[in-house]
């Protein structure tokens, strides 16, 4: 049971990192990334290949983040003239390109057989299953760092800049803001975080193949951001947790519901998750959290408002 819990928490941490990355790109900067899983896979494969080639974990992670961020920057730069919905199509296409490349370039990626035996870093904690707990601790540290980064970005002037580009890019440009550069920066930073999630995923399983990187990963990240509240990093932590608990927790339905066949139950799980999200959108469409807004009085140079 402990082992199962450790695994679940590890997956929640990775899912939360993906959701935070999507929140930066879509929640704050308004860039729909339907190809999220493609960047996630790119990060996972880059980290895996570097690890297999003998690179240390730090180097493998850095390499994966740089490569994925560069690809993200290229996608954002190429599609900068496209309106929001077209970026969705471009990223969706990118995700498919990545999947097909991974599947077919087997000299590098192992094709459908995938990459086995990926060496992974961990902390050697005492006790049974100590290395799994150790890896969970690593994932939680990574999540904490990712959270710090995105929250700092969201609260800084750069966060306002992203939100302005999201709300009305024409206005941002008339105020002297270089909208294209903002979009490229936000997308690339988000992609670097997706690569972080990908590297942790590859290390956690020790084996990756293209079947792990299906568009459902993208859907889960969107669910987490919608449930958590677009723009709100604390909300998204909760949202990712809730979504993953729903997904993993509903496995136990089979212990409670004995009148449905196992294969039907699998389909029922997805229906339940979808229904949950719909109910959530009906009763709390803005999500759990609200994005950070800097109040005037929080500046030392602004006098506190007179109470009226």
């Amino acid at each position: 049971m402990i082992a199962f819990l450790v695994t679940i928490l590890t997956l929640v941490a990775i899912a939360a990192i993906l959701a935070l990355a999507l929140n930066l790109q879509w929640g704050l900067c308004g860039m729909v990334n339907f190809g999220l899983v493609g960047f996630f896979a790119l990060g996972a494969y880059a980290a895996a290949l570097l690890s297999l080639a003998g690179a240390g974990p730090a180097l493998a992670l850095l390499g994966a983040m740089v490569i994925t961020a560069a690809c993200g920057a290229a996608v954002a730069a190429l599609s900068h003239r496209l309106a929001e919905e077209y970026l969705a199509i471009v990223t969706l296409g990118f995700g498919e390109v990545v999947r097909l490349t991974l599947l077919n370039e087997s000299w590098l990626t192992g094709g459908a057989l995938g990459l086995p035996g990926i060496p992974s870093p961990t902390l050697r904690l005492p006790g049974p299953g100590g290395e799994h707990v150790g890896f969970l601790v690593l994932c939680l540290i990574a999540l904490a760092l990712a959270y710090l980064v995105v929250e700092r970005l969201a609260r800084a002037p750069f966060g306002r800049l992203m939100r302005a580009v999201r709300d009305d890019d024409v206005v941002a440009a008339t105020l002297g803001k270089d909208v294209v550069r903002v979009r490229i920066a936000a997308f690339a930073i988000g992609c670097a975080l997706l690569a972080l999630g990908g590297a942790l995923h590859a290390w956690h399983f020790g084996y990756i193949d293209p079947s792990q990187f299906t568009p459902i990963v993208t859907a889960y990240a969107f669910m987490a951001v919608i449930a958590g509240g677009r723009g709100s990093n604390p909300g998204i932590l909760v949202g990712a947790g809730v979504v993953m608990l729903l997904i993993e927790g509903s496995r136990f339905l089979k212990d409670v519901v004995d009148f449905v066949a196992a294969d039907q139950l699998a389909a029922l799980r997805l229906i339940l998750i979808g229904a949950g999200l719909i109910l959530f959108l009906i009763y709390r469409p803005q999500g759990l959290g609200r994005e950070y807004r800097r109040s005037a009085a929080s500046f030392p140079t602004v006098p506190a408002p007179a109470s009226s």
């Binding site: 002037p157 306002r160 939100r163 302005a164 709300d167 206005v171 994005e291 807004r293 800097r294 109040s295």
Partner: peptide, 12 residues
């Protein structure tokens, strides 16, 4: 910029 407060519009 409707998602920003009035004050944040000016800060931006």
């Amino acid at each position: 910029l409707e998602g920003l407060t009035l004050f944040e519009n000016l800060l931006l």
